[in-house]
């Protein structure tokens, strides 16, 4: 087997939040043959998610992690997915992602982002976290970049475009950020693991 795919097939990635970022990061990693995904969210699919998230109209009202598991299995029927329908917090992050090598921070809420990144960096010594900040609005696609902040932290985004100021989230811009995250995760796996 090609060395890239061999490494990907042995890696476990945690997806914290399965909205616009997480559902698309998961799809990209499944297409690349990731070994296992631990997908975590507490939400259900709503109609206004469909402008950017990897769900379908007939899934509105369904538990997100269950609907996403079905969609990922339609890409690769043999994919290994652990779906957990729970709200992540400071107390349960460590246990839920104990098996993961890398965790993708894919939340919407800024405080949730802070909690996830801080917990991984301060309490989960051997794990990487790939986060996203600044992807709301439209256009300015080339302002979205991947930055290596420190040994175990990568942040993608433009760093300033929040939903609070930009008012909209669009499939293109959120998708660019999600693909930056998936791309950074593949690079970590292939080059550093």
């Amino acid at each position: 087997m090609n060395k890239v795919y061999e490494k990907l097939s042995k890696t476990v990635v945690g997806i914290a939040g399965t909205g616009g970022l997480g559902s698309n990061v998961a799809a990209a990693l499944v297409r690349n043959g990731i070994g296992k995904l631990i997908i975590v969210d507490f939400d259900v699919v709503s109609e206004d998610n469909l402008n950017r998230q990897f769900y379908f109209f007939d899934q509105v009202g369904r538990v997100k992690v269950e609907a996403l598991t079905e969609n990922l299995e339609r890409i690769n029927v043999g994919v290994n997915i652990e779906a957990i329908n729970i709200r992540l917090d400071r107390e349960n992050i460590e246990g839920i992602f104990s098996e993961a090598d890398i965790i993708a921070e894919c939340f919407d809420d800024a405080e949730q982002k802070q909690i996830l990144v801080e917990t991984v960096l301060s309490r989960m010594g051997d794990k990487y976290v790939v986060s996203a900040s600044g992807l709301a609005g439209y256009g300015r696609g080339n302002e979205i970049v991947t930055k290596r902040i420190s040994e175990r932290l990568i942040v993608v985004g433009d760093g300033y475009s929040g939903i609070d100021t930009e008012k909209v989230l669009t499939a293109g811009r959120v998708g660019i950020a999600a693909c930056h995250q998936a791309n950074a995760i593949v690079e970590l796996i292939v080059d550093e693991m």
């Binding site: 970022l21 997480g22 800024a110 986060s131 420190s150 929040g162 609070d164």
Partner: peptide, 10 residues
């Protein structure tokens, strides 16, 4: 001091 700031949206 390094400060990593998060803005909402995902």
């Amino acid at each position: 001091v390094e400060l990593i700031r998060f803005v909402p949206g995902g």
